[in-house]
Write a protein that binds this DNA or RNA. Structure first.
Lengths: 196, 196
DNA sequence: GTCTATATATAGATAGAC
DNA sequence: GTCTATCTATATATAGAC
């Protein structure tokens, strides 16, 4: 037998993209963030790149494939953050590392994150996407410290929702990234310091 | 001059709805929550009620008018909560009353709230809707206690995002409403008790 | 990899009868 | 208040040339 690479189904597939595919993904990510998936047409994506619809369809057979490609790129970042955090033992230290990485990630892309996270099309897609569900398990394990009681889960869910949602909140739109990031860190730590 | 009712532009218009209009609004609210505004067609709304598209268009001239009607109904609840909270002086007590009312509101409609709040079409609409912006000012004034510093605003925004987002979070989907509500209250109070 | 051209379905919206 | 029928624009998607 030849050297066949074993595929690790517990991890996101890392498909190599052509330059043309990368252009589609980048334009789609921006438009999905601003208009939602349903509010973004193939024509809008094509116009943003400066090609025709047919050229986009040459790269991805369907619109859904574009959505999946966008999500795989996006979730790759989250997977990396989890890999780093898991080098620490499960516990407050791993949680702190993870939250710092996640906060960096959402602040850096604050114009896009919130809308994407709640888009009904994306929510539906991810709910049946096995590698994503495994990522969420890893994320929540660190966030709750393994505690599966109602209190720990509500706390984890609220902090997760807070971090994902705050970056586009009207109350903080005029804050610069650095201020927002540091205040988010400070407040998050304060919460854990007290409720642990 | 006759008895002309003065219109209070600082409050939401309370337009009396016919039964047919109420049916449209109710079906639209449900569908917007599940598919987003862009993902919901007039045909879907008509099918949900059991009439034709033309019948829906007889009640509302455009799709946007339906969205606005849905939001006015929805925000009416928020306005009532603010009216109640503002009978207390601005301060921790008003904040506590407001948060309890808002938590009740989002838990009661947990399947819908989160998607609606982040829908790009709705966000755009509300950003130029004066009565809504005034509601947000009142909400944030109570939430921050009038403190306009970065720390207070990030805290207010995170708590606001946490409450709006937690109710549909995967970590808590299996919790019943009562447990979720009481844990949300407990955690929210704990945060304020420590960070005030 | 990108183009023109086209097929097919469905979107939002209106006219006019009952 | 609801219907049938229809208009126009745009959606996803494909065929085939360069």
């Amino acid at each position: 037998m030849g050297a066949v690479e074993a595929v690790d189904v517990t991890r996101l597939p890392s498909v190599p993209r052509s330059a043309a595919q990368a252009r589609v993904i980048s334009a789609a990510l921006d438009l999905f963030g601003r208009h939602g998936v349903s509010g973004t047409s193939l024509q809008m994506i094509a116009d943003a790149i400066g090609v025709t619809k047919a050229a986009v369809y040459h790269q991805f057979k369907t619109k859904e494939e574009i959505v999946i490609a966008v999500l795989e790129d996006d979730l790759g970042e989250l997977e990396s953050a989890l890999d780093v955090a898991e080098t620490e033992d499960v516990g407050p230290r791993a949680r702190e590392v993870l939250l710092d990485l996640v906060i960096d990630r959402v602040v850096h892309r604050r114009r896009i994150v919130s809308a994407l996270q709640h888009d009904p099309v994306i929510v539906r897609l991810l709910a049946k996407h096995e590698p994503f569900l495994l990522l969420m398990d890893r994320l929540f394990a660190i966030l709750t410290g393994g505690d599966t009681g109602a209190a720990a889960r509500v706390r984890g869910a609220m902090i997760s929702a807070a971090i994902g949602g705050v970056v586009t909140h009207p109350l903080v739109v005029d804050l610069d990234d650095e201020t927002l990031r540091s205040e988010m860190r400070r407040f998050t730590r304060q919460i854990f310091a007290v409720t642990d």
